[in-house]
Design a protein around this nucleic acid. Structure first.
Lengths: 212, 212
DNA sequence: TCGTCCATCGGGGGAAACCCTGACCGCCCC
DNA sequence: GGGGCGGTCAGGGTTTCCCCCGATGGACGA
C-alpha cells in the first residue's frame, strides 16, 4: 500500500505537534483536531485511511469519535492512543471499533509502524493489552454447571427450551407429541423450580443464559 | 517469573523433536504428547504453566485438548501453534480458551519468547491474526439504524422495552402510570408495525436486537 | 381551520396461559 | 412389595393476552 493517509485526534496540542514533527516524514498526515465534534466532521470530509485517536478527551472521549465516524464511514480504521493501559479503557475502544491500542510511551518509528500495520488491516496491540482483549473475549470456556438448570429434569429442560423460543403450549405439545395438559405440568414445574412467575420471565431467564 | 514449565502437543513427532532441540535450552519442557487423550491426561498430571498445542490433530484437534483441560485446570495457559493462518482456525482455538496463536514459520527464539509472554499472562499473536480475533470481537459497532424500530413512536418503544423484559400489562401500566387498556393499544400497535403475532415473538425479536 | 398523528381510555369477547387437585403408569431401589 | 420419582393426563377455575369496535383531547402543519 502507498503512504497511508492519517488523521490525528488529541486534545493536547503539544502532543499533536509532537506527533506531527516525529511522524511527518514517515506517514502522510492529512489533518488533526482537538475536540470530538470537529474531529468527526473533518474525518468525514477527508476520509483518511487511519485515525490516530486519544482515548481520554472531553465530550465523550475517543470512543465517541470512533462510534460516530464508523456509523457513516465504516472503512476508516482507528488506532487508539492513550496514557492509560487500564483494561476498561482498552475494551471500551475496541468495542467501539478501534483496530488497535498503543500507549503514549511508544517511540516515533514504532508508532509509524503501528499506523501502517493498522492501515494494512492488521490489529496492533502491546502484548499485555492484547491479553485484556482476550479476557473480554466471549470464550466458549468451561461450561458453568448451572445449579438452577441442574434441578430440572430432562423433559423439563426440553419444554423450557421451546417455551424460551416463544412456542405456544399447543405447538410444544404437537412437537413433543404429548398433550397440552402435560406441557402445562412441565411449565409449572419449571416456573416453580426457577422461581419465575410466567413464561415471559422465563424467556428472559433463558436469553440471559443463552440457552436459546 | 522463573523458567516456565512447558508441555508440547503435536501429532508430528519430527516437529516435536525439533521444538525440543531448539527450545530445550531456553525453556523447561516437562513433557509431550502426540494425541488428544494422552495429552489431556498428562497435562492434568504435570500441570505445566504453558501448553504449546498444535491446532490440527486427529481426535478433535488442539481445540479438544484446550477445552478438556480448562474444564478441570483453568490456570493452564495455551499457545496454539499451526501451519494454518485461516481465520476460522484462529477464532476456534481462541474461543476454546487459547491465549495466543503463532504459525509454525516462527523461529526458535521467537517461539521461546512467545511462550514466556504467554506464561506471563500476555496474549501473543502475529499482527494479522490479531486482526482476525478483533473481527470476531463483539463490537458495539455502528448501531444499525433499524428501520423497523424507527417506525415506532417513543411511547411504543417504552412499552416494547418493558414487554421484552417480561412484565405483565398490569405491571407496565403501573410503571408508566397509564391504564392497562392504553398498554394494550400500544402493544397492538407495536405488534402490527413489527409484523409479529404475540409478545413471545416480541421478546425474541428484542433479544435478537439486544434491546433488553 | 381542518386533517392527521399521537396518547389516552373504554366495552366486549375469544383464546391462551396459569394454577390446583387428583390420578395412572413404569422404573428403580430398599 | 411398598415408596419415591418422573412422565403422562384430566377437570375446572382465574387471570392475562390479544383483538375488535369506538371515543376524546392535544399537538402540529397544510
Amino acid at each position: 500500500m502507498t503512504e497511508p493517509r492519517v488523521f490525528l485526534v488529541d486534545d493536547h496540542h503539544l502532543f499533536l505537534s509532537g506527533v506531527k514533527t516525529e511522524l511527518g516524514d514517515l506517514i502522510d498526515i492529512v489533518g488533526d483536531a482537538s475536540e470530538v465534534e470537529a474531529a468527526v466532521e473533518m474525518i468525514r470530509e477527508r476520509e483518511p485511511d487511519v485515525v490516530l485517536v486519544d482515548v481520554h478527551m472531553p465530550g465523550g472521549g475517543g470512543r465517541a469519535v470512533i462510534e460516530e465516524v464508523l456509523r457513516t464511514h465504516p472503512a476508516v480504521r482507528f488506532l487508539a492512543l492513550s496514557v492509560s493501559d487500564a483494561p476498561e479503557d482498552v475494551i471500551d475502544v475496541i468495542r467501539a471499533g478501534a483496530r488497535g491500542y498503543v500507549t503514549k510511551t511508544i517511540s516515533g518509528p514504532e508508532l509509524a509502524d503501528a499506523v501502517r500495520r493498522v492501515a494494512d488491516g492488521d490489529a496492533v496491540f502491546s502484548p499485555r493489552l492484547a491479553g485484556f482483549v482476550l479476557d473480554a473475549f466471549p470464550s466458549s470456556g468451561p461450561p458453568p454447571v448451572d445449579p438452577e438448570l441442574d434441578q430440572l429434569t430432562a423433559r423439563e429442560r426440553e419444554v423450557l427450551r421451546l417455551i424460551a423460543r416463544g412456542y405456544a403450549y399447543k405447538e410444544i405439545a404437537r412437537q413433543l407429541d404429548i398433550s397440552v395438559k402435560t406441557v402445562e405440568t412441565h411449565v409449572s414445574a419449571v416456573l416453580r423450580k426457577l422461581q419465575l412467575s410466567n413464561r415471559y420471565e422465563l424467556s428472559r431467564w433463558a436469553a440471559d443464559r443463552r440457552l436459546i
